[in-house]
Design a protein around this nucleic acid. Structure first.
Length: 897
RNA sequence: GGGCGCGUAGCUCAGCGGUAGAGCACUGCCUUCACACGGCAGGGGUCACAGGUUCAAACCCUGUCGCGCCCA
């Protein structure tokens, strides 16, 4: 009924073509609502996507982040849970505004947003969003992400915007949000405040200019000098100096504290103050204080009693010198870097330039604009982050939210405990406009609508705040805003809090911290997720961070084109070992593409043998040991995968299913059952084997589906007529009673015996084509029974002609020891006796060496007394086995003569 | 300066108290009727170094060296 196959026959093609399959299956899943099956009675499982920027395109980091989320969501969907992956995009205020402004500048009209006006500009941004904003969500589909697209969200949607406004108003009314004049990181290119997290500190070669500031009123230093030397990396800021600070403990300056200097160029008198910020060990020990343009100086200024409103602001929004107390008119309007040259030249001309030295300086740059950030004194809206952080810290301390790997909680605590007031206003147009209205007299009215503000204000003219909110202010509401908050929707009741947040560790400050604060505050103290899974960065094969400028970025879409989405997903999953950075080597992807092909071919083989998918999750009844064995192996594999997923060990998950599918199922089970399916074999056993193979293959498809959804869904339908898609199939039964220890032991023995015989043959250069007779010595009744049962398998896999329990004929032979029995392959005339002697000698020595080590350990006094009883018991068993093996190998050596 | 982490096979990485593992690469053999994007077999590691704890250490502790990242 839901068969997505559009080809006429269900025959598995000789070649596996990911591109065709992926496009077809994704459309099928999405159009049939498979990503969000209705399961009202099931346990909810919820992930909210870290919303990608609407301007973005899929890079390899997204591919990793979303692959992991999809593995989780598909796994939980298969487990029968009510799995919801909330998806959507973020309006990305500054990034989007930049993109659209650039397009406008490059367009034929070459128009600026100021020329257009706010309303027209915003219409243009929305138009852009409708046309180009879907890039990344289309690309997520290429990856196979099974998100709930039917409820896709955007942070600027009406409902979400209403939530943002409500949060702003509530925080304001709770006095957790306020307007204040403080220093911000000002981006003179975009003319907006930016977050300190958007400031990138770079080391650049700069200078340290030492200026002489003349002491006022004829005062002299203890050493007789009439000036104080201060050094600065930013000479132009001297125009805004409001003090010179010295350390109270510095004897050189003790006598001048409280006196004044004549600030050159400006002819302003500024005080000499005592402050611990001045380090006697650094430079002259005296520092100029520019409270309006330096974060440290701002604090010094406040300690000295200067109110923020009185601090001098010497730059305008574009960082040009502004008209200001004492600043000469000739300097007004010139750019800050020009001003620097001018000031230095003028100081030199005044004979006040003491000296200049080269200095590496830490320079703040805007991570998007690339220009030097100016600490600037402005009125902005601030959230009292410290108050909101307290319960967010407690939630992690109390284990309500866990970081995986756990050590990220240290990073979280460190940042949260030192959190600064959060500046949430931005001087942009694209974003949530701040719901604050001003009266001409400066009064502020904060309300959800203009009408409400007007009602508060009475019959006066109001003007709305032109600024918008920081994008993170809105995305902090993502875990509940996407579920309909502030409406108390059934979705919200059911899917908040989320189970897991999957994100890069680099986003802990930006986003995780903010979601924790807002989630707890607005959702009755319930943090937004139980687990925060932090993965690492994807680097190139050499371990270098990918960047456009280095040209070492790998495009996930190109990798998908080349190897298929499944191979890329498997690679990223297999390499994800709890937060460690991933060095992505294309060879690895190629290897997992090969794995996909391997499974494809195994399914082809099964199909050509009349094997079809099972109709029941329960395994078929089985009598043959190999069938009973594989059933047990499937169950144990499913249990191991459950354990891996519970522990968020994506790498374990991938390697467990890889090993099982390839090294167990393909290499052994399919080979061991070939004789059972051959012509002339027992019809009952053949039928049982077909049923078990079909069942086991089905289970592999289910178990692998979270990582390789396309290949597995395709094979699921190729192998049988199904009444549902694999994406909504049931996880295998994991009943331990399905594991039969006796058959497991028998197949384990068989595998060891075949491997030993193969090894011996290869080492002795016996032609792979030659079929040899096998003589068994010292086999007990149980072993003889096993040999009889497994004769067809031994004949095929070990290339044995006939098995005899009679003594081998005299003469050269290869001898194999497995457990208590010795197996002889007569090779009179062809065997290299020396080589066989060497082989046996090597094996005997190894066994003896190990036996000696074990008996040494058992003889040591402390071991048997202090070690765990299991460890002692195991050592005894191992010793017995190794000694026995050594004895038999020595006997074999003796027989060889 | 503070914090986090990493140094295990040629490469990329698991393992984190009981005899060293995987994938890739490498070597030999194999056109065996699912698969050469394959099969079979094999070589390769004083687990950075030095001390210590322990009956037992790649794994725990201390220090040294080397390499990252974050914050100031």
């Amino acid at each position: 009924m839901t068969n997505p196959d559009t080809t006429s026959a269900n025959i598995i093609d000789k070649t596996f073509d990911p591109a065709e399959i992926e496009a077809r299956l994704y459309r099928h899943w999405e159009s049939t609502g498979a990503f969000r099956p209705a399961r009202p009675d099931a346990k909810p499982f919820t992930i909210v996507i870290p919303p990608p920027n609407v301007t973005g395109s899929l890079h390899i980091g997204h591919a990793l982040d979303n692959t992991l989320q999809d593995v989780l969501i598909r796994y939980h969907r298969l487990k029968g849970e009510d799995a919801l992956w909330v998806v959507g995009t973020d309006h990305a205020g500054i990034a989007t505004q930049m993109v659209v402004e650039r397009q406008l500048a490059e367009s034929t009209q070459a128009v600026t947003r100021q020329e257009m006006g706010r309303a027209a500009f915003l219409r243009t941004v929305w138009d852009w969003k409708e046309v180009s904003g879907g890039t990344i969500t289309r690309q997520l589909r290429r990856l196979g992400a099974s998100c709930d697209w039917s409820n896709e969200r955007f942070t600027m949607d009406a409902g979400f915007s209403a939530a943002v406004t409500k949060v702003f108003v509530r925080l304001y009314n709770e006095k957790l949000l306020y307007r204040d004049k403080r220093l911000v990181n000002w981006d003179p290119k975009f003319k907006t405040a930016i977050s300190d997290l958007e400031v990138e500190t770079r080391e650049v070669q700069g200078h340290f200019w030492h200026f002489r500031y003349p002491l006022a009123d004829g005062v002299k230093l203890a050493d007789g000098r009439d000036h104080i030397v201060v050094a600065t990396t930013r000479p132009e800021t001297m125009l805004g100096d409001m003090a010179v600070a010295v350390n109270a403990a510095d004897a050189r300056y003790a006598s001048v504290i409280g006196k004044f200097v004549e600030l050159p160029i400006t002819d302003r008198r500024i005080p000499i103050i005592a402050d611990d910020h001045a380090d006697p060990e650094l430079g002259s020990g005296a520092v100029k204080i520019t409270p309006g343009h330096d974060f440290n100086d701002f604090e010094v200024g406040k300690r000295a009693g200067i109110a923020a409103a009185d601090m001098l602001n010497i730059f305008d929004a574009e960082a040009r010198v502004a008209a200001c107390d004492g600043v000469p008119a000739r300097l007004v309007g010139i750019d800050r870097f020009e001003a620097r040259k001018t000031i230095v030249a003028e100081m030199e001309a005044l004979g006040l330039l003491d000296r200049v030295e080269d200095k590496i300086v830490q320079m703040p740059y805007g991570d998007r604009s690339g220009v030097v950030i100016e600490p600037w004194l402005t009125d902005q809206w601030y959230v009292d982050a410290a108050t909101l952080a307290a319960p967010a810290i407690a939630a992690v301390r109390e284990g309500k939210t866990k970081f995986v790997p756990a050590n990220w909680d240290k990073t979280y605590f460190n940042w949260m405990e030192n959190i600064q007031p959060w500046c949430v206003s931005r001087q942009l147009w694209w974003g949530h406009q701040i719901p604050a209205w001003y009266a001409d007299d400066g009064r502020v009215f904060v309300a959800e609508t203009e009408a409400e503000a007007q009602a508060q204000a009475g019959n006066i003219v109001l003007r709305r705040d032109e600024d918008v909110l920081d994008t993170w202010f809105s995305s902090a509401l993502w875990p509940f805003g996407t579920l309909g908050w502030p409406e108390q929707t059934p979705q919200l009741a059911r899917h908040y809090p989320g189970d897991v947040l999957v994100t890069g560790f680099d986003i802990i400050f930006f986003w995780v911290a903010r979601m924790m604060m807002q989630g707890i505050h607005f959702m009755d103290d319930v943090p937004p997720f139980a687990t925060v899974y932090c993965h690492g960065l994807v680097r190139d094969a050499k371990g270098i961070k990918m960047s456009k400028s280095r040209g070492n970025v790998v495009d996930p879409l190109i990798l998908i084109d080349k190897y298929g989405a499944d191979a890329l997903r498997f690679t990223l999953t297999a390499m994800e070992s709890q937060g460690r950075d991933i060095k992505l080597d294309e060879k690895r992807i190629e290897g997992y593409r090969n794995f996909a092909t391997k499974l494809w071919n195994a399914a082809r083989f099964a199909q050509s043998n009349g094997i079809v998918g099972s109709t029941s999750a329960m395994p078929p009844a089985a009598t043959a040991p190999v069938n009973r064995w594989i059933i047990g192996e499937v169950v144990e594999t499913a249990r191991a995968l459950d354990a891996a997923m519970t522990a968020f060990r994506f790498d374990d998950y991938a390697s467990t299913i890889y090993q099982f599918a390839w090294s167990r199922f393909c290499d052994w089970y399919l080979e061991l059952t070939k004789p059972l399916l051959a012509e002339g074999a027992d019809a009952g056993i053949a039928a049982e084997t077909r049923a078990v193979t079909g069942w086991a293959l089905d289970q592999i498809l289910v178990l692998l589906h979270p990582v390789m959804p396309f290949l597995t869904e395709e094979l699921w339908h190729k192998l049988g007529s199904r009444d549902h898609d694999l994406i909504v199939a049931a996880w295998p039964v994991t009943d331990a009673r399905l594991v039969d220890a006796d058959t497991a032991a028998e197949i384990d023995w068989l595998i060891r015996l075949v491997s030993e015989i193969r090894g011996g043959r290869a080492e002795l250069n016996v032609s792979p084509a030659a079929k040899l007779p096998l003589h068994v010595r010292d086999a007990d009744a149980a072993t003889q029974a096993r040999i009889r049962r497994q004769t067809p398998a031994l004949e095929r896999l070990a290339r044995i002609a006939a098995i005899s329990f009679e003594a081998a004929p005299a003469g050269g032979a290869a001898q194999i020891v497995v457990d208590a029995a010795t197996y002889t392959l007569p090779l009179e005339g062809v065997i290299d006796l020396a080589a066989e002697r060497a082989r046996l000698e090597k094996a005997a020595s190894a066994a003896e060496k190990e036996a000696a080590a074990l008996s040494g350990r058992l003889a040591s006094p402390g071991f048997t007394e202090k070690a765990k009883p299991e460890a002692v018991e195991k050592a005894r068993e191992d010793l017995a086995a190794r000694s026995s093996e050594a004895t038999r190998l020595r006997a074999a050596l003796a027989r060889l003569g």
